[in-house]
Nucleic acid binder design. Structure first.
Lengths: 170, 170
DNA sequence: ACTGAAAATCTACGCTC
DNA sequence: GAGCGTAGATTTTCAGT
């Protein structure tokens, strides 16, 4: 079905996401907890139609989940930072093991594996500057595989809460 | 009410988030679309209790929203990169205007305002490497206020989907 | 993709502790 | 004030078309 959808039903789009799907995706990124009924009304279709669309999107892996966004201060995380890290030797084994172990640290929100000058970028969120310092000293400085790291405190973040579909590369 | 909660009812926590709240937060980060009934059952409380807790958390701003997580490939965004940017002069006016205008670009997922060597970090997601190149040339290179930028392609990202509460700084 | 009806859920309110 | 149970309103879900 996902294959046959590629050509029909899709206002000229190559991927299996038509305009109705795109609108569902947009609305659920904005508010994942609105009822299927509200969703259907906003789209101008019957609730059963909407439900089936959402289920199909989930089945196809387009919708990967629904997550509550929580105020960081309430989680005792008022200070955020980006830490760029170089590791040595730059082998698959070292990269995998470093990635796995730092991604399990509670202070770490995200680990990015990068191409270029730095090998990793860690997005961390901690209680305060003291704990940031402590994290760097206790969790990073001691690792033998780290050749160097550089920390930038984050003053502010602007996030695009709704990610739109970009035009096809063609 | 939020103030009186500070001392009673909070197993020694300073913030107004007790253990039940913390568990609600954890469960809603994992799956924001589960029914209030499921939530209540997982917590071992009545649905009406659970509903009131969730509403209170929302009212207090602890829960900021609910968002669907969408597969980037389905949005035509197979290539991600981090772009660190320096701007000059480093004035409030330049920072604010740069931040506002780049955060509106559809390719930009997040803008971080940083302390330290770099002034901004842009998290971008585009169709392919050609479009990344195009974005850099068309949207960044032309800006007068940019003193320099450096791009790192993201090979991989590991994200902590549930952010836990850290111990109080005290 | 819609309609309709049964099952499940939501949620306001009065109650107890 | 926090949590609970109930009941009426709403929503979900799935035939059948």
């Amino acid at each position: 079905m996902a294959i046959s959808r590629t050509f029909d039903q899709n206002q000229g789009r190559i991927s299996g996401v038509d305009e109705l799907d795109a609108e569902i995706i947009r609305l659920l990124q904005t508010d994942a907890r609105q009822s299927n009924r509200e969703l259907a009304r906003a789209l101008g279709v019957a609730p059963s139609t909407c439900l089936e669309r959402v289920r199909a999107l989930t089945r196809r892996g387009v919708i990967r989940g629904y997550h509550a966004e929580i105020d960081h201060a309430a989680l005792n995380r008022s200070v955020q930072a980006m830490v760029s890290v170089q590791v040595r030797p730059l082998s698959r084994a070292v990269i995998e093991s470093f990635k796995d172990s730092v991604s399990r640290l509670p202070q770490v929100l995200s680990v990015f594996v990068l191409a270029g000058g730095d090998d990793f970028l860690l997005h961390v969120a901690v209680q305060d500057l003291d704990h940031l310092h402590g994290f760097l000293l206790d969790q990073l400085s001691q690792r033998r595989e780290i050749a160097g790291f550089r920390t930038s405190v984050i003053f502010q973040r602007v996030q695009n809460s709704v990610i739109s579909r970009l035009p096809d590369p063609a």
